[in-house]
């Protein structure tokens, strides 16, 4: 089992003919993801890699192929529209990889997607992977291995680092989800934790947060109140100065709020395992599995 993506995932790639979209569509096909369609307005009727049909609109792609999941690689100015188009076409899981979506655009996208009962992951995220089954996004498949740990993270390469260390130590994953580093995004930590709690194959969860906002604190409260499975957490940015944006648009300590210390305290108070460094995930998860 897994969360959000599995054998029934039928994927449409928005921006499939672009530089990033075509590169990653190929990687996803090679990984075995069921890529049923691509969308690039004006290129409808073409075939990607001689097999995946390209459509002008997501609605066309859904009607013709029954796609239920979308991944977005379109440039930032058009990403908000692409997310809303996917939700409006009846896609139930919308994954936006694009980095640099304006935050005011996201204030409009979020309620729009919610109203249409779609789940949004991202933007500015690496997507998700259920090892050996399906990959939606850009997480390198070879660092993952199937197993019983759920992984959820606000970061990209930090997730790879942790997953790589887990895989090397023989700890496999059910699903790895990157929820993205923007201040306003779709699916949050709590929703992922909820899904992992409900997934019978997931036995423990590794969670990587970072400075900025209060998502991790709320997630810790959720763990304390509602989770039976062990959760190990890490916060990036313990050495980050206040008031500075650390690369990710959402990674900023505002005034005195959103510090790593505050988040780590919340983890401890919730009885979670606290990884001081990425390598600690291995020992802390071994102890709990």
């Amino acid at each position: 089992m897994s969360i959000f993506i599995d054998r029934n995932t039928k994927l449409v790639v928005q921006g499939i003919t672009g530089r990033d979209g075509s590169f990653h569509a190929k990687q996803m096909l090679e990984y075995g993801t069921c890529v049923v369609a691509g969308v690039t307005p004006g290129k409808g009727g073409q075939k990607f890699e001689n097999k995946v049909p390209v459509f002008d609109t997501v609605a066309d792609a859904v009607a013709a192929t029954g796609a239920n999941t979308s991944v977005i690689y379109v440039p930032p100015p058009f990403a908000a529209d692409a997310m809303m188009e996917a939700a409006d076409a009846g896609i139930s899981l919308v994954v936006c990889i694009t980095e640099g979506v304006p935050v005011l655009d996201m204030t409009r996208v979020y309620p729009y997607v919610q109203d249409r009962k779609a789940r949004l992951i991202g933007p500015n995220c690496p997507g998700l992977i259920t090892p050996g089954v399906s990959k939606v996004g850009i997480i390198p498949g070879r660092i993952c291995t199937a197993g019983n740990v759920g992984v959820v993270s606000r970061s990209g390469t930090l997730t790879y680092e942790v997953v790589y260390q887990l895989t090397r130590a023989g700890i496999g994953q059910t699903t790895c989800v990157g929820i993205g580093g923007d201040p306003i995004n779709g699916t949050n930590f709590i929703e992922c934790l909820q899904a992992f709690e409900a997934d019978p194959d997931t036995k423990a969860v590794a969670m990587m947060g970072e400075i900025g906002g209060t998502d991790e604190q709320q997630a810790a409260e959720f763990v304390r109140a509602h989770m039976s499975k062990p959760v190990v957490g890490f916060i990036a940015g313990q050495t980050a100065p206040p008031g500075r944006r650390m690369g990710h648009a959402g990674a900023i300590i505002s005034g005195s709020a959103g510090t790593a210390a505050e988040k780590l305290d919340a983890f401890k108070a919730a009885g979670m395992g606290v990884a001081q460094r990425p390598a600690d995930f291995v020992t802390l998860l071994h102890e709990r599995l």
Binding site: S153, R154, S155, G156, T157, L158, T159, Y160, E161, G181, M208, E210, I211, F234, A236, G237, Q238, T239, A240, M246, G247, H248, A251, A260, R277, P278
Partner: peptide
Amino acid sequence: NGAGLAMATMDL
């Protein structure tokens, strides 16, 4: 490469 890993590297 990557903001999260960059922060984690500084922390390490």
